[in-house]
Design a binder for these strands. Sequence first.
DNA 1: ACCTGAACACCGTTCAAGT
DNA 2: ACCTGAACACCGTTCAAGT
Lengths: 223, 223
Amino acid sequence: MARTALTRSEVLDAAAALVRQHGPAALTMRKLAAELGTAVTSIYWHIGNRESLLDALVERTVLEMGAIAPRGTTPVDRVVSLARRLRRELRARPHLIAMVHERGLTERMFLPAQQALVREVHAAGLRGAAAADAVRAVQFQVVGFLLVERNRERAPAQSPGEGALWSAPPPARDVPRDAALARALARPVDPDRLFTTSVRALVSALLTPPAAVGDDRITPSGP
Amino acid sequence: MARTALTRSEVLDAAAALVRQHGPAALTMRKLAAELGTAVTSIYWHIGNRESLLDALVERTVLEMGAIAPRGTTPVDRVVSLARRLRRELRARPHLIAMVHERGLTERMFLPAQQALVREVHAAGLRGAAAADAVRAVQFQVVGFLLVERNRERAPAQSPGEGALWSAPPPARDVPRDAALARALARPVDPDRLFTTSVRALVSALLTPPAAVGDDRITPSGP
DNA sequence: ACCTGAACACCGTTCAAGT
DNA sequence: ACCTGAACACCGTTCAAGT
């Protein structure tokens, strides 16, 4: 009995520790109370129910996600560097990022990064709606890649995986027989490389003006 | 008492219905048993525990996800059409897709689509490792976009959202003041349009070799 | 082979009662 | 203002027992 007064942030710290080590499922109110040396119900007084506890945890993570500075000289390089640093930051907090995602707050967490993107896209000469499109395309691309990547890491060995399927002869009739391609697809993905390649392709297509060599693109009209 | 013999697929049907309507959290063994008119423990005999029930449900969804045929004439158009049809298919099954994702099976679910991509990328003239890179870049892009989109839909009105932040003057010093851009970013995202724009940008950057204007593509006979 | 109820060990949450 | 234990309504899972 008679421990020092329980504080909200103390509860959050303990909860964050539990989540960090064993994932959000391991965070039960009773375990948390035991960890803190209090009665379960004290937590309710300070934070409310489990849901708002998780919300508070997520809120914290979002705030910790500060602004990021780009590097490089060309606009494409700078945007790519932004994307890569974002990716590194997020990969350091897998569980909490997942919880941010589950709560639909991923976008908000990315707002500082969005502002940096706006700066670079503007510097590249894009204006108005076209600039906004470019910013959002990159943002979706980066966040999306991270989610896919997280997904893949959780299930490292799937069966049948790409490897098994592509080292055998292609099952569908009209899939071309390209040995080098099949070999490449049978190898595991190198996320670093794929990420950089993808972002660079997207960004250079978005930032370089169409150059108008007899191209058919005018304004995209809705389908 | 005395209902017709319980079958595995009957259990799965009932479970799928529960998930479809109220999400996976609403799928409790007791509710499911009540729905089926059996004892809770009968389910254990047929399927095992809750986890393997969910696994079976996910397995089913993956199998339901058949191959998809591309449309259009140019390689870029055909790849974009593949991406768009994939997106439509997946958006029809939000809860189950989320469960597939949680189990790290998203990649496997996309294997048929991957084969279609290989076909198109090959037809566009890419070979070997470069072709594999292109296929994977597109695949990650599509899956990633879907995950981000799902995330956004779950939290339609975030505060402070992009809107609030961009309709006020930019908080960071060196964020450029571009009224049209700010207005565009304050408007809600149009996912259809953004998706098509992004995929098209990525694909055209990946498929068009840096030079070469006069090349003819090598035919696929497309439906 | 299939199904059952009882029991166990866990949950989150509420509430009246303490200080 | 802060903390408590008891109690409630839910879980998933096991198991011995039925047919």
